[in-house]
């Protein structure tokens, strides 16, 4: 395929994924609202928020890194997304999937956080470093079960290419990793709770202690970039999980249903629990999910 066509397709795919991610955010807000006993904001509220934030007349910056923070973060989201094949067999949504893309994606998930950490640290607000410290340490811990789970997958499917992993799961529902290697899925889903920063692992952004943590100083377009990224990044993560554990998707509808359900899992848990303290969260991730992750490796390697 022509590289320009590929780029063109990727742009379309990014735009759709961002819109989808933001809309998903809106839907989830509605669902939360129902649990609260209210109706909640309209589904398109996240879009208006982004337009509004962009429309701010002033943007205070705290230095070069402050500019770069959101850019890195967006690059992280973009990078994650661009190397994940969204729809199995679709040319438009194939993105830049290639051999070893799984490693690249895992790197990009981490990368955005680090870039954000640099930019937020520049803000000078004492809550930012606190939030960064919490965020990075928590991320390190939820990366452990996730990484273990991915290793299990790599062993199971003998590949680090997501497209190949998806391909291996086609055919029957029983081919999904969910059924072939349930331990890896459990470990990964628990670490997804941390990744999505819903309760009980939302201490990084906890408004009650460190008002929204790292992005506290982010304003105007900086914030808008972060908000846009949130849509894209959520979509990317969900699609990644769908691809790795739930058999991928062959068309847009299946993709939407599956990712929505995956997202609902973290919403389902998030609504019911308060949040852990950082050290409790870390202790938690290093305990059960890690053990399960190790079991999953043992499971695929020796059974």
């Amino acid at each position: 395929m022509d590289i320009w066509t590929k780029i063109f397709y990727a742009v379309i795919s990014v735009v759709i994924a961002t819109i989808y991610g933001l809309a998903l955010g809106g839907v989830v807000r509605k669902i939360y609202a129902r649990v609260h006993g209210r109706y909640g904001p309209p589904v398109w509220q996240p879009f208006i928020d982004i337009i509004k934030t962009h429309a701010k007349r002033v943007a205070v910056s705290h230095g070069i890194m402050f500019y770069l923070g959101p850019v890195f973060r967006f690059a992280g989201g973009l990078g994650t997304y661009l190397f994940i094949p969204v729809i199995f067999g679709s040319a438009v949504f194939a993105n830049f999937s290639m051999a070893g893309d799984l490693l690249l994606v895992m790197y990009f998930i981490f990368f955005g956080q680090l870039g954000m950490a640099l930019g937020a640290g520049e803000g000078g607000h004492p809550y930012s470093p606190l939030g960064i410290a919490r965020g990075l340490s928590q991320m390190t811990t939820f990366e452990v079960p996730f990484a273990l789970s991915v290793i299990a997958l790599a062993i199971q499917y003998h590949t680090l290419n997501i497209t190949a992993i998806v391909a291996a799961q086609q055919g029957s529902i029983l081919n999904w990793t969910l059924f072939t290697n349930p331990f890896a899925v459990v470990a990964a889903m628990i670490s997804m709770l941390g990744m999505n920063m819903h309760s009980p692992f939302s201490i990084v952004l906890a408004p009650q202690e460190i008002p929204i943590g790292p992005p506290i100083e982010m304003n105007s377009s900086f914030l808008a970039t972060l908000q846009t990224n949130r849509g894209l990044f959520v979509a990317a993560k969900l699609i990644l999980f769908m691809n790795l554990y739930f058999g991928g998707a062959t068309n847009l509808v299946v993709m939407i249903v599956k990712t929505f359900l995956i997202y609902m899992f973290s919403v389902f848990v998030g609504a019911a629990f308060p949040r852990f303290r950082p050290e409790q969260a870390m202790r938690f991730f290093l305990k059960w999910p890690t053990i399960i992750g190790i079991i999953s490796i043992i499971f695929v390697a020796y059974l």
């Binding site: 807000r29 209210r38 904001p41 309209p42 701010k56 929204i212 506290i216 914030l223």
Partner: peptide, 22 residues
Amino acid sequence: MTSRYDMSRYGIAPRPSPRQSS
């Protein structure tokens, strides 16, 4: 802010940081 009046319906939301509030 809470369920009885639910101001989020009108696009109003609380925000903890002055940088982001309008």
